[in-house]
């Protein structure tokens, strides 16, 4: 009898513990499944597919080819150019958006007249359809009737072949992307700025720091977490630039604006090569991973923060 009682109590205890433990996992299960299906599965599929060959007609896998897909893209000058351009987009975008976003955020944080409107305008660019934005910029960049060349002409500067020049085109795509995407890091910085206690600025003012030294010694260090997030987001955004390339230049001229995202797209959807496209996507992911790890390491703060 005592044994029986003990086991039954034990079982009750286990049931009770189960009833206590189960609801937690059960509640996060849908999110885990959704994440798994929509986030990680495609990633795994891309990696797996990069080692496969495919039937070019119906894109069904036909076998394993080891690193052949990688060999193929690595020997393609188009890939090399797309790789270099991807890095170029990241560098240009980060160099342009991060300081600009910081500047705008600091400006908007002053709550000057018109800052609500300015914030709305910047966020509207972020919210606008990328394709529509690209079409609008296509008109702005138009070599003849476009606004930019009209401005250049009006101030007596030589007109520019924005989207068709070898060097100008990548910058033109990047410029549009900066305009489009600067709102995201700006919002991150704005949130970061608003989380900094006002007292710290007052303390700095009494400590004798002018505006620049306050920014340099107080604002900037305290924005470090925001900076890490913004760098991360913008690196991904810059790596993923696609729609403007597709609409404005189709990767041209001479591949000058192609990046890994566009290159992968073409491989898969125009050149019927899902294996090579997956290999290219994997390379793109590696670029993001390496750069963001480097950023996190470089932007690491003192242990107190």
């Amino acid at each position: 009898m005592p044994t029986a009682i003990r086991t039954s109590r034990k079982r009750n205890g286990r049931m009770a513990r189960l009833a206590e433990v189960l609801p937690g996992p059960a509640m996060i299960l849908p999110a885990v499944v959704a994440l798994g299906i929509f986030q990680f599965l495609p990633l795994v599929v891309a990696v797996v597919n990069s080692f496969r060959s495919f039937n070019p007609f119906n894109q069904s896998p036909t076998g394993w080819v080891g690193l052949a897909n990688y060999d193929e893209i690595f020997s393609d000058p188009g890939f090399q150019l797309a790789f270099v351009n991807t890095i170029a987009y990241i560098v240009i975008m980060l160099a342009a958006t991060i300081p600009l976003a910081l500047f705008l955020a600091v400006l908007l944080d002053q709550r000057l007249p018109g800052s609500t409107f300015a914030r709305g305008a910047i966020v509207a660019a972020l919210a606008a359809s990328e394709a529509v934005s690209a079409l609008i910029w296509n008109q702005l960049y138009d070599p003849r009737g476009g606004m930019f060349n009209a401005i250049l002409a009006a101030v007596g500067l030589p007109e520019q072949p924005f989207l068709i020049g070898d060097t100008q085109s990548l910058l033109s795509i990047a410029a549009m992307s900066v305009w489009k995407d600067v709102g995201l890091p700006m919002l991150i910085f704005l949130a970061g700025l608003q989380a900094i206690p006002r007292e710290l600025y007052e303390a700095a003012a009494l400590d004798g720091a002018g505006p620049w030294r306050t920014f340099r010694n107080v604002t900037l260090p305290l924005l470090r977490p925001s900076l890490v997030v913004a760098l991360f987001m913008m690196t991904i955004t810059a790596t993923r630039i696609f729609t403007p390339i597709l609409i404005l230049t189709q990767g041209g001229p001479n591949g000058a604006t192609s990046n890994l995202a566009y290159y992968s797209y073409r491989l898969n959807f125009e050149f019927m090569a899902p294996g090579a496209a997956s290999a290219s996507v994997v390379c793109m992911l590696l670029v993001i991973v390496v750069i963001t790890i480097a950023q996190t390491w470089l932007a690491r703060g003192p242990k107190g923060v």
């Binding site: 010694n217 260090p221 003192p302 923060v305």
Partner: peptide
């Protein structure tokens, strides 16, 4: 709230 600089 002391307003100490948290990063220093």
């Amino acid at each position: 709230n002391y307003a100490l600089y948290p990063h220093m």
